[in-house]
Nucleic acid binder design. Sequence first.
DNA 1: CAGTTGTGAAACCATTTGGTTTCATTTCAT
DNA 2: ATGAAATGAAACCAAATGGTTTCACAACTG
Lengths: 109, 109
Amino acid sequence: MDTARSNKPDVFQAIADPTRRRLLRLLDEQEMPVTAISGHFTISRTAVSKHLHILADAGLVRERKVGRERRYKLDPEPLLELKRWLAYYERYWENKLSMLKHYVELEEE
Amino acid sequence: MDTARSNKPDVFQAIADPTRRRLLRLLDEQEMPVTAISGHFTISRTAVSKHLHILADAGLVRERKVGRERRYKLDPEPLLELKRWLAYYERYWENKLSMLKHYVELEEE
DNA sequence: CAGTTGTGAAACCATTTGGTTTCATTTCAT
DNA sequence: ATGAAATGAAACCAAATGGTTTCACAACTG
């Protein structure tokens, strides 16, 4: 990790880490400051902070300064890219028959 | 990478790499042997082979021996986990109003 | 003003990751 | 049987990743 590099904010990369997925869930429910957030994890506050920056770089989280706190909140918008990516494969399960057909072909041949 | 460890076949992890996403697309269109596949990439055949094993571990790809070749083909089933994960956030864009409301709230406060 | 709280930046570190090159093995072609 | 083709395993490597500890600083609380 090291530093929060604002280089390649990749959604796929961002959600690859389980801790970050948990963070997204948490911040969907409510906006929270870093210390409160890190109370939900066993890793250090600093580590959580880094994950938050990665999520922010990917646009998955919004940051807002309130006094000395820095509150984070989910921004689901970038997940649309994932949704679009997934949509390509949608035809496989858009109906049970196509799925079945797929498996039959896999088994045969 | 090093070796194809059949430890934690994580879908999120598997699709995090852009090369692997390209592989999935390619193998959706047709079943192919390793050498043919690696013709589509600039990295070495061995590297492609490793990516294929990672995808296979995640269940995203099926392997079939045919003579001296080893043919790979997409198995989209594990993508359903991703779809389910994504479904949680679905309410945000299930209608334009909820999305709009979300952004307004983000801007306000 | 003095002290405490909330947070990020830096410097480190071990492990994982994506790649390469080399070698061994299996299967096909002659 | 002999050689070429298709592929995985091994050993190795540089860079990225996820963590930690320490330090500095801004902003509240007395």
